[in-house]
Design a protein around this nucleic acid. Structure first.
Lengths: 159, 159
DNA sequence: GGTAGACTACTCGGATACCGTGTGTCCGAGTCCTCGCGG
DNA sequence: CCGCGAGGACTCGGACACACGGTATCCGAGTAGTCTACC
């Protein structure tokens, strides 16, 4: 069980977008150059964020990506779900249906104790991620490194 | 991010082992026939459980698998970790190292706010799974279907 | 000088290959039971 | 009748193919800015 590395890229890129000049669209190439990432592939991840309504994209010169909402309104779970998809990590195949006493009419994703347990754990995981917004992450970074916003904007200007 | 289906198989098989006659070794073929699973592949998963010390294996006629410890001493997390491996789902590549102000001597898996957040969520997930033992699952199933232990043993006898 | 038009450069978006991990299968090593033979 | 030994059957264990999703790349569609020519 491993999540794609695009999740890390997307989260850091969203933070950088949050620190960019308000209203400024940042192209994927700049976001990629920030951490020396493959630009085309990062672009693909950003497209997923755009489809999820987390960022908006604009084509052409002076185009790029920008956050679609305020950082306070974007949770870490939103970003993770946009990249990894909405389906749960544990996929209940309902094998109980093939076992003794298995019924065709029962939804074992709800009834099976194993499924319930795994679902409960994922719920706790989602709850943690949903409780953290981009603004929270920004605040924690800035409390440790107050110059980060200015440095980010400066870096975007240089690239 | 999707965990292997072997996790579901392993959990249900462990439950069935817990309900089997004490001291009886159940071969992989019987466990597979229980839910009409591919026997050789389930055997592979059971080997992983054996390597993790959750079950013990014995070769030859009358051989098979049995639980290595009491169900109270086996957590769901133990089984999941045995199948999926101990590494975390979120893999921090420490891309901050390549960014502006990135240092070679900093362990960003500890320092990076993104990594901390993801790690915290996985910790909550693990805590949930570690809080449930096989005995807990057994009890919940038996409270709903008291005949399950007898039916399981009967099924093993028929196969 | 102002304006309209076309051109160019830039960016996203999706279609297209490549690779690694999970999925599935097979055969060999080891063990126990059983059957036959000899005492 | 009892003990011993060889054979066979059964099971795990790891080595070997296959498939699918994640990884990476490229090229086309669309847009904004700019330059030029004309009014």
């Amino acid at each position: 069980m491993q999540m794609g590395e695009g999740v890390e890229w997307a989260l850091h890129s969203c933070l950088n977008l949050a620190w960019a000049e308000p209203g400024e669209a940042v192209p994927a190439a700049k976001l990629a150059a920030f951490y020396d990432l493959p630009a085309a592939y990062l672009n693909k991840q950003l497209q997923a964020l755009a489809r999820a309504g987390i960022v908006t994209s604009v084509s052409g010169p002076r185009g790029g990506f920008r956050l679609a909402r305020a950082p306070e309104e974007i949770t870490v779970l939103d970003v993770v779900t946009a990249i990894e998809g909405p389906q749960e990590a544990f996929r209940c195949q309902e094998i109980l249906r093939r076992g003794p006493g298995g019924s065709e009419s029962v939804d074992y994703r709800k009834a099976c104790v194993v499924s319930q347990t795994m679902r409960g754990a994922e719920l706790a995981w989602r709850k943690e991620l949903a409780g953290q917004t981009l603004a929270d992450l920004q605040a924690r970074v800035e409390s440790r490194s107050p110059r980060t916003p200015a440095m980010t904007r400066q870096r975007f200007g240089e690239l």
